[in-house]
Design a protein around this nucleic acid. Sequence first.
DNA 1: GTTGACTTGTTATCATGTAACATGAAATGG
DNA 2: CCATTTCATGTTACATGATAACAAGTCAAC
Lengths: 178, 178
Amino acid sequence: MITSQPTCDKVTLVTDDCDRTTPAFAPHDHRACEARALDEAAGRLAEQGGRMTPVRRRTLEILLESHRAMGAYEVLDRLAAEGFGHQPPVAYRALDFLVEHGLAHRLQRLNAFAACLHPGHDHAPAFLICRACDKLAELPAAPVRTALSNLAAETGFAVERVTIEALGLCPACAEAGA
Amino acid sequence: MITSQPTCDKVTLVTDDCDRTTPAFAPHDHRACEARALDEAAGRLAEQGGRMTPVRRRTLEILLESHRAMGAYEVLDRLAAEGFGHQPPVAYRALDFLVEHGLAHRLQRLNAFAACLHPGHDHAPAFLICRACDKLAELPAAPVRTALSNLAAETGFAVERVTIEALGLCPACAEAGA
DNA sequence: GTTGACTTGTTATCATGTAACATGAAATGG
DNA sequence: CCATTTCATGTTACATGATAACAAGTCAAC
Ligand SMILES: [Zn+2]
Ligand SMILES: [Zn+2]
Ligand SMILES: [Zn+2]
Ligand SMILES: [Zn+2]
């Protein structure tokens, strides 16, 4: 059980294809996206001492196939079809492991999971969820989080974890709808 | 089906017992809390044309008994014990109605519902959830929401609804724990 | 090579949420 | 006042999401 709290929201304006302003919504080289995430994930796990087993790797790969959140049972179906176990705990354990180690996120609003797109460092982003195409983007949420913590502090409440999930329209769908 | 979006986060520094800075966490005259919420709820419904039926009223009263979020089945048990229907849709319909009309909120993180404490005007607050005592407070979230919308706008994403839920320790529990 | 920690798989069960349909109350309109 | 229509309430049955508890296999360390 990993107990580290998400703390870092550094806005790393890296220069590779997938991590610019609108990673998920803009067209991009998604193969690179996947590859980099897997790579960073491996590094992250090495630091933390977690073991990247077949089920876990495959689960992460499945999540990485699209910029969408997937339900646990959807993941399970995929795993089962590929020869892994057929029972819910198989999926939930793999998913929980990925979340605990910062390689995936849980979307509270959707009861679903999504791969983290830059697991290289600990972070707790806000999520933008397109209600039309279901795509999902992470947004560095440090400013937002700080604003909330300050507000809460005025009431004496000590914020530990924050869930920020926004529903709306991605650029593509907004244009299509208009 | 009500389609109005939550738009107002006015910080009304009213002078009655229950609506100060820490309505839920601080000791207060909770009878007044309930009474005022029910009263405002009635007014709100009148404006919107909704009907406050027995199940709906009772559901709201049950939610108002405490500053906690309740699961739909917990509410259902109470309703059933009082002679209302025994099946899930009974609770879900009443709860959905209350949420759609701004008289209750849904807590995504908890899969649970809570009465709105000041349903007098349309609002979409942030929530502070104490992990020790389960109590819950609403926080005017306009600044936070604005910060997020601005961030999102940079990526071309049009935010429509935002879920902000913070987990942490309320003043009382923080003191007790220390 | 045996111990001990961890991983994977199972069965069974619980929790949460909806679809679809039948009945009943209430507003609407002649 | 009654007919029409709309909305509310109740039901059964099912879908989806999540976990507890146990058995067996894997792997590193000593
Ligand atoms: Zn990508
Ligand atoms: Zn979209
Ligand atoms: Zn109160
Ligand atoms: Zn508390």
